[in-house]
């Protein structure tokens, strides 16, 4: 089963839930798709195998270039510009669409590979851990996420996918082939607002969903929403200072018998759905 863990905003406990869930499911793989702020490896420490992720970017043959400007005009991302007497390429803006190469009348444009980030793999107590990290100054990490999902296609064991925050295109890439989406929310009006946003996204892609309430309190705002939309609340993790401390120090809470049962219960409920 492939379980994607999402939340509308950052800091609600996505990584906390995914890390501990993956930890209690035997041999489950953990994928860190939050490539802008990857934090999963703060928990799953270990030696890593690193692989570069490349995209194609244009290079200009300045001898052949006639400075006609067609490439710069075509590029909708403004990744090319005529600066004094040369066409310059701004690779961080390039979306690798290949358009400039197509429109160049004198075939002065070819493509080369450029690294936009890395994928790191490690083994942690029987769990395969795959995480991506985007290079600083890049604008989008979607290609890295695609690559992580591609690598994970061969995994036969259960998979937990720690998604990026928000409801943008990188989240769409992360949940692409998930069987189930687990939505993490805190019981505040902020939490509810962001939950609705991300729930809408999962419905466009017709995903099965369930909710985890983190820092659960007397305030039943998320439960009420879940009931009205007919979504199951699979787990409520009460606010607990000690639990918060363990997590903020980058430790796996499920290693502690006191907290293990939360995640085991969650795993049981999820894996029952496996077909």
């Amino acid at each position: 089963m492939r379980i994607a863990v999402l939340s509308g905003k950052g800091g609600t406990g996505k990584t906390f839930i995914s890390v501990n869930l993956a930890y209690v499911i035997k041999n489950a793989a953990y994928l860190d798709c939050d490539v802008e702020e990857p934090n999963g490896d703060l928990y799953f420490k270990g030696d890593k195998i690193v692989k570069q992720v490349d995209v194609d970017i244009p290079v200009i043959d300045h001898d052949a270039c006639t400075l006609c400007g067609k490439c710069a005009d075509f590029c909708r991302f403004n990744a090319l510009a005529i600066i004094i007497d040369k066409v310059r390429v701004f690779s961080s803006l390039c979306h690798s669409c290949g358009g400039c190469k197509l429109v160049c009348p004198v075939s002065a444009i070819t493509e080369v590979k450029k690294s936009i980030g890395t994928i790191k793999e490690t083994e942690f107590e029987g769990h395969r851990v795959i995480g991506g990290e985007m290079n600083i100054k890049e604008e989008t990490g979607v290609k890295i996420i695609d690559e992580i999902i591609e690598i994970s296609k061969d995994i036969l064991e259960d998979v937990v996918i720690d998604c990026p925050p928000g409801n943008g295109c990188s989240v769409m890439g992360s949940i692409k082939n998930a069987d189930y989406c687990l939505l993490v929310a805190e019981p505040t009006i902020f939490g509810l607002h962001n939950l609705k946003m991300v729930y809408e996204l999962t419905q466009v892609f017709e995903k099965k969903v369930g909710i985890v309430i983190n820092k659960a309190s007397q305030h039943k705002i998320i439960n009420d929403f879940a009931e009205s939309e007919n979504i199951e609340v699979l787990l409520e993790v009460p606010f607990d200072k000690e639990l918060g401390l363990i997590n903020s120090n980058g430790e796996i809470a499920a290693k502690d018998m006191k907290y293990k049962h939360f995640f085991e219960k969650l795993a049981d409920k999820l894996l029952v759905r496996k077909v």
Binding site: R76, F77, N78, A79, A81, I82, I83, F90, L93
Partner: peptide, 18 residues
């Protein structure tokens, strides 16, 4: 002219200045 362009306005402005 590039005021409402989501991408790379800095580059186009530099192009304008030059």
């Amino acid at each position: 002219e590039h005021l409402d362009n989501p991408h790379g306005v800095g580059i186009k402005t530099a192009e304008f200045v030059l």
